[in-house]
């Protein structure tokens, strides 16, 4: 088998806080190949974003502390790189898109300048990304214009002179996508790229993202808490709960036959047309205390199927079908009641 694009093993991360050290990631395992769009789902605080930030080493240490982590990008150990080498990967091999397009662009610089700066930074490591031009700056400008066109910004030449506040939310998100892709990354980490947008713009952005992935043969991690977005966009999905990947696999398999009780509860929480008024399905209990987590499966306190064995040790990911793995001792085997 070929080397995967991104391989995360045993990612344990602790964050120092006033009350003590919180074990926010507890052995995350994730493997992404080119052409795959992985949806990373889970409720707020389950560690989705921290996983994304850990890959490109953007968390300040302290307060963050890695207890153990093996993160490789095409076989290259990212944890072993010097800050300078890591810097050289950001924006070039790893592109990132963040959640809120209103706060992620520099408010005092023109859109064109911001794109050109990223293009120039990327070109320092790989000059071939720039189209032939009189100067590097002219090449970077041409690339920025091309990128703006690709992400569907109308009249890019005029829009280059605009400031972020003169753009709509959807247009700003397109700019962020253009900035993330301008350095031709192999891996794109999109942290809730559509959460701040309305539904129709969200659909446009997701379609654009899919088109970009197909065109550039990227591997993508799409962090979201919206299972609808996952079903629409992703090829694979990893479900996280309290710092663990509890289930992962091809999106059809996981949605049609969720094996982990937590995944099942998440799916049941989605209201459908037939859901009666007031009939929203919640999940009893709350997320465990991450400063002193329970020793076994972190979902056990909320789980109806939990036994003594569940509380004793963290269950490992085990196969549940082709490519479908679940970290549960008592996985559900029936099909989901509705899809």
């Amino acid at each position: 088998m070929t080397v995967p694009l991104l391989d995360i093993r045993n990612l344990h991360l602790a964050m120092r806080s006033f009350e003590g050290e919180a074990h926010v990631l507890n052995g995350v395992e994730l493997c992404v190949n080119r052409g795959e769009i992985w949806g990373l789902v889970g409720e707020s605080g389950c560690g989705k974003s921290l996983t994304g930030l850990s890959i490109s080493r953007l968390l300040p240490e302290p307060p963050a502390r890695y207890i153990s982590a093996e993160i490789t990008l095409e076989g290259r150990d990212l944890r072993a790189l010097s800050p300078r080498e890591m810097q050289a990967l950001r924006g070039k091999r790893i592109g990132m898109i963040f959640q809120d397009p209103t706060t992620n662009l520099n408010p005092t610089a023109r859109i064109g300048t911001q794109l050109v700066d990223v293009a120039l930074a990327a070109a320092r490591h790989d000059p071939t990304i720039l189209p032939p031009a009189r100067s590097r700056r002219a090449g970077a400008r041409a690339l920025a214009l091309d990128m703006m066109r690709q992400v569907g910004i109308p009249d890019p030449e005029a829009r280059m002179m605009s400031y972020p506040h003169e753009f709509s939310g959807g247009m700003r998100q397109r700019v962020l996508i253009a900035m993330a892709l301008i350095g031709r990354p192999d891996l794109l980490i999109a942290d809730e790229p559509t959460t701040a947008l309305d539904v129709s713009v969200q659909a446009q952005i997701l379609t654009l993202l899919k088109a970009m992935v197909a065109e550039h043969d990227l591997g993508v991690i799409l962090i979201t808490h919206n299972l609808g977005v996952v079903a629409q966009t992703c090829s694979h999905v990893a479900v996280m709960y309290a710092g663990n990947v509890v289930e992962r696999g091809p999106v059809r398999q996981v949605i049609e036959r969720p094996a982990h009780p937590y995944t099942r509860a998440l799916m049941a929480a989605i209201p459908t047309r037939d859901t009666p008024r007031g009939g929203l399905q919640g999940l009893e209990g709350t997320v465990p205390d991450l400063i002193q987590p329970p020793p076994g499966c972190r979902f056990a306190p909320r789980c109806t199927r939990a036994t003594e064995a569940c509380r004793a040790a963290v269950p490992p990911l085990t196969s549940q079908g082709p490519g479908h793995e679940v970290a549960c001792l008592h996985p559900v085997t029936e099909d989901a009641p509705h899809v």
Binding site: R90, P107, R124
Partner: peptide, 25 residues
């Protein structure tokens, strides 16, 4: 601010983040 994190995530050189992103704002 978020845009400083974004600038780092996009691999902008340190001096550019300092002058154009941080100092100006």
């Amino acid at each position: 601010q978020d845009y400083v994190m974004t600038a780092r995530a996009l691999g902008l050189p340190r001096h550019l983040i300092l002058t154009r992103t941080i100092a100006r704002n």
